[in-house]
Design a protein around this nucleic acid. Sequence first.
DNA 1: TCATTGATGGTCT
DNA 2: GACCATCAATGAG
Length: 192
Amino acid sequence: MLISPEYMLPRSFYQRPAKTLARALLGKLLVRQEGPVQRIGRIVEVEAYLGPQDLAAHSSKGRTARTEVMFGPAGHAYVYLIYGIHHCMNVVAGGQGEGSAVLLRALEPVANLEGRSQGPGLLCKAMGIDLSHYGWDLCSDDLFIAEARALHLRFPRQSIVARPRIGVDYAGAWAAKPLRFYLEGNPFISRK
DNA sequence: TCATTGATGGTCT
DNA sequence: GACCATCAATGAG
């Protein structure tokens, strides 16, 4: 094992507004333990989904079987299937019942990723994440997020850029809000 | 390089 | 039956 759970982010890390959490997640390490293999990717691009008032958020459609985990405690994974093909992974943010989450959009490969991870679908494919991870507690072994200092690697200092979210044109004024965040100049961003 | 389109299935109406 | 927080293949320029 490369990263010890000692570096796992605590529940309290996730208990803040999605917009703040999104920025805080940049540069952190997504870790999946699969038997003896540890897959690691550095989070370089995310999107914040603020809650039922945010017309781009799935939670704006109400509390359903699919969105239920979004309304639960922070630090759990909201995974869904999109276009019948790809999986997307979110991290539940905020307080209980808020319905906010952060979509993980791109990783910089660090260890054992299968192929590219630029884009939410590719990210899940590279990490081996699917619907079986729906509701997964990220404050547990096997799938968690760790502090960057868990690795003795040097990453360049990059500032955070905010842009409109991808693929949410249906959301009216909410589509234009700068809730997509990424590390400026990082080569592993999904799109310019 | 860019725009267009097909794949494919869970969820909600 | 329509929609979809995507991706890869295609073809025109």
